Computed example of a mutant assay.
Amino acid sequence: MPEGHSVHRIARQFARNFVGKPVFASSPQGRFAEGAALLDGRAVESVQAVGKQMFLETEGDLWLRVHLGLYGAWDFSGEILVDPTIASANGRMGQTNQRGTDLDASSIADEAPILDDAGENSLASIGAPRKTRVHVRMSEATKGLADEGAEWPPPVVGQVRLRLMTDSTCADLRGPTACVLQTPDEMLATVAKLGPDPLVGDVDEGEERFVAAVRRRAVPIALLLMDQSVVSGIGNVYRAELLFRARLNPHTPGRDVPEETVRALWRDWVRLLAIGVETGQMMTMDDLTADQYRAAMAHRDDRHWVYHRTGLPCRVCGTDIVLEEIGARKLYWCPRCQA
């Protein structure tokens, strides 16, 4: 499932390429035909992400709410102006890199792109990984990827629920869990049900909301971190990694987790989310050399402590990583480091 960092990257792509412009909306698949007809011709006024959901405001007080769910993704094509706060496929290094890593951004600035084997950092398709990619003509920020002979508008490929287009940029939505239109009041009501997102509102207020929500519940912390009313944006990968980084037993009831540990979880989520938004990858490893960082950016197996490492030795203690099911989702953890 696309986690919070992906949705924030999508929102920034829309802000850069669609806000202030009228959109041509259609539903090639037909399942959102009425909604697309209402959106068609309206100017986009703002866009924001909250956790795993994106809200696109158009003129006339009409909001588009999209929740990608397990399989949803946005495919961008045409001329794409890349938001400067997110990296290209190279994955920028520097001051917002993971904790404990001190790497010189200039040392890799002219190297070949770090291409992720799972497509997680793609600026062309953001969401559930795709085996194919639509044509992309990037901005000057990513020179060398242009194809002046590409067909425009791009042909519809697969089951496109919603296509939004400006004169030069196209965004195709496939496989979302939710794609609905809302009034301003309905949009605010949806957001009010969501837990704090480090990139939305005051981060200190978000911390207090998170601490209060966790420490009043007897539910295991592993379930609380996946509860979008407790905290927004955390999915299976970040859940496993945050708990390992905190050396916290996933079955500990929220009310039994020391307050300082809960606060540390929030602050680590603030840090990891920022890294994920910038690089497009859920990078959770610390203290990597330049070569290790490049390997981790290219291969998911090299960038996580415990996620997807069932039966492999813990990177810290050597104990086999355990896989179990909790809340109908897979949970990876180290029974020794997180005892």
Rank of each mutant, 00 (worst) to 15 (best):
L242A: 03
L223G: 12
E259V: 05
T279P: 15
V257I: 07
D291F: 09
R271I: 14
S232K: 01
G254Y: 04
W269A: 04
Y293F: 13
A246P: 06
R216N: 07
V219D: 11
T284R: 10
V219M: 10
A246L: 03
I275M: 14
T261H: 07
L242H: 04
R247N: 06
A240M: 01
A218M: 06
L242M: 03
L288G: 04
P258T: 03
A295V: 14
L273N: 06
H299C: 12
G276C: 09
D287Y: 05
I234P: 00
M285G: 13
M297C: 13
Q228P: 09
V237Y: 02
W266L: 08
G233Q: 04
L272D: 11
A290Y: 11
E278L: 13
R239Q: 01
P258S: 06
R263N: 04
M282W: 12
L288N: 07
H299E: 15
V231G: 07
G254P: 08
H251P: 08
M226K: 04
Q281K: 15
M282S: 14
R216F: 01
D227Q: 00
Y238M: 02
G254W: 03
A222F: 01
A290W: 10
V270W: 12
A246S: 05
A274M: 11
R267P: 13
V277G: 08
V277E: 09
D286Q: 14
L288A: 06
P250L: 01
G233P: 00
R255W: 09
A296Y: 10
